[in-house]
């Protein structure tokens, strides 16, 4: 039995949940697949999930804490007898899956790109060493793994499953005092197919208006370097790099970004990389497919113009 922990926003399943089901289906030889929806409004979301899976458990445990999520997932493991647990990779899931893997004394494969099985083990491919190394890991069952977002095609509905309520003994511990959400505009950074990132070389927070405009025209998201976030020009949620987000878009356009290793750790797997920098020696050019050596203050408006003409 395989258990998929399904990510949702309180209303609907997230795309990552449909990707995680896809991963589970690839391991079909290990037996049937069950799902679990944890959190607020779990029952309603589980109804949607039942279009994809024969059995979906719903654990109404209220707002997120790692302890509650691990406990609820563990209850679903016990109920289903699952030997493999699949979840979508993210900061929160990589916290509670660690707790869950410890409860199960399972092998844990974090943020996998692909996974397969020989019937006794799970073999997973993932990045390590700040995204620079690709490695294959192997762990005997039981195994818990997270699937990196955007690495598996989302599945289509098949049939009509049943929803079962799951009783969970709620652990105490963390008490949430305040949620500080950041307002999001446009596409989310990790899901975007185009990312336009601005670096310190833009000179001012105002110069990001051009970055936003270009990203908007390309249907993409705005990214920022650590220096820009540290300077308070852009919110942390836009930071790309080792301590920010890891992105893998079709096009990563780096404007006035020098390209330190820590930044590269968050974007070096992008399909195409284009860069604009006035320094021909900037490290970003070494990993760029296309580079313009020039002044970003002149090139950025010209790029906006050129894209406008293209759209006309």
């Amino acid at each position: 039995m395989i258990l998929v922990v399904l990510e949702h926003d309180g209303q609907r399943l997230r795309k990552g949940a449909l990707e995680a089901i896809g991963r589970a289906r690839q391991l079909g030889s290990l037996g049937p697949i069950a799902g679990v929806v944890i959190g607020e409004n779990a029952q309603a979301v589980a109804q949607e999930a039942a279009r994809y899976l024969p059995v979906v458990y719903a654990a109404e445990v209220g707002p997120y804490t790692a302890e509650k999520w691990a406990e609820a997932a563990y209850a679903a493991v016990e109920r289903s007898g699952a030997k493999v647990v699949v979840a979508t990779g993210g900061r929160q899931s990589r916290t509670w899956t660690a707790r869950l893997a410890y409860k199960m004394r399972a092998g844990l494969l974090e943020d996998t790109l692909e996974t397969s099985t020989d019937g006794q083990h799970i073999i997973g491919t993932r990045y390590s060493y700040l995204n620079r190394v690709t490695e294959r890991q192997k762990a005997p069952l039981p195994v818990v793994f997270t699937a990196k977002p955007n690495t598996t095609p989302p599945v289509e509905p098949e049939g009509n499953g049943t929803v079962e309520l799951l009783e969970v003994n709620l652990p105490g511990g963390v008490e949430v005092l305040e949620r500080l959400s950041e307002q999001k505009k446009g596409v989310s950074l990790t899901e975007a197919t185009v990312v336009v990132t601005g670096g310190r070389g833009l000179g001012s927070p105002e110069a990001f208006a051009g970055v936003e405009e270009l990203a908007g025209m390309l249907g993409g998201a705005v990214g920022a370097t650590r220096a820009v976030v540290d300077a308070g020009w852009r919110p942390y949620s836009e930071q790309v790099g080792q301590t920010g987000k890891t992105v893998q878009p079709n096009l990563y356009l780096a404007l006035a970004v020098s390209g330190a290793v820590q930044h590269q750790a968050g974007m070096n797997k992008s399909k195409f990389i284009a860069a604009v920098n006035k320094d021909p020696e900037a490290p970003i050019f070494k990993i760029a497919d296309y580079g313009i050596v020039g002044d970003v203050h002149q090139v950025l408006p010209a790029l906006i113009e050129a894209v406008k003409r293209l759209k006309d």
Partner: peptide, 29 residues
């Protein structure tokens, strides 16, 4: 519990095509 079978550095071959930005409009185009 987990074994590393193999590690590799799979750097994507990049085109490294450089465009002179002296004429920003032409370069952007």
């Amino acid at each position: 519990r987990v074994e590393i079978l193999e590690q590799a550095i799979q750097e994507r071959a990049r085109l490294n095509r450089m465009i002179d930005g002296k004429d920003p409009a032409a370069a952007a185009h």
